[in-house]
Amino acid sequence: MPNRSPFPLPRLDAAPIKDVARSLRFVAERGGRTLKQALPLDALPEPAARLAEGAFATVERLGATAGRGVSGLAHSLLDPDGPPPPLTTDAADAEARFATAMHAGLTRALAQLGATEALVSEAAAERAWRQVMAAGPGADEAAAAAALHQALLAVGAVREVDWPEDATLPLADARGLALFAVLLAMQGDPGDFDNRVAAATDIALALRADIGTADPARLAALFAEFHDHV
């Protein structure tokens, strides 16, 4: 007799698990950095200095272990390297593929723009995708990209960013530019995604004045203008 479950199992959404893993790692790493900057280790006498260094190592280990453990589970649930889906598709796996690619792309784009660390939520990206698909994205990929840009901003897909204090580009601008870049890179040929994001990020930066003030119609026009030029 075949070994079958009497009830169909619900589909396990890996995005929240990945988000938890990444949040733990992000908080642990940021906490470690903050502690190191805040505490005058050099001024501490022994054995206090040794104890403090031991405490740092414990914090860092904790974050890394938590991150690795949950991340390993999440990665076993979903192929992390799949290409992004077309932005107008209603394929069953499109939501998860979109969120995975959005995470990878946003992390890449924000780093290129100057972020030292970034925390991107796949669950939020999935939520944005569902919102846009529920509204009916139509057949126009540029219009769908513009709607996704607005939705991703609204749901806060970029959760946290460590941004240099002396950066000339404000973080608020960088979020919008990174989203534009990844959505631009997702249009057209899905291959070579990482290089497409790199090029699209520099295009977005060059279009900073346009993107910063663009309404959805203008954003769609910008996507249509540049999607063949990445």
């Binding site: 090029a199 520099d202 295009i203 930066l205 060059a206 279009l207 203008e225 540049f226 030029h229």
Partner: peptide, 17 residues
């Protein structure tokens, strides 16, 4: 300077289009 090169490319593209 990759950023500058991209800016030049974008400006050039818009003019030729």
């Amino acid at each position: 300077d990759d950023r500058k090169l991209a800016r030049i490319f974008v400006d050039w593209l818009r003019q030729i289009e």
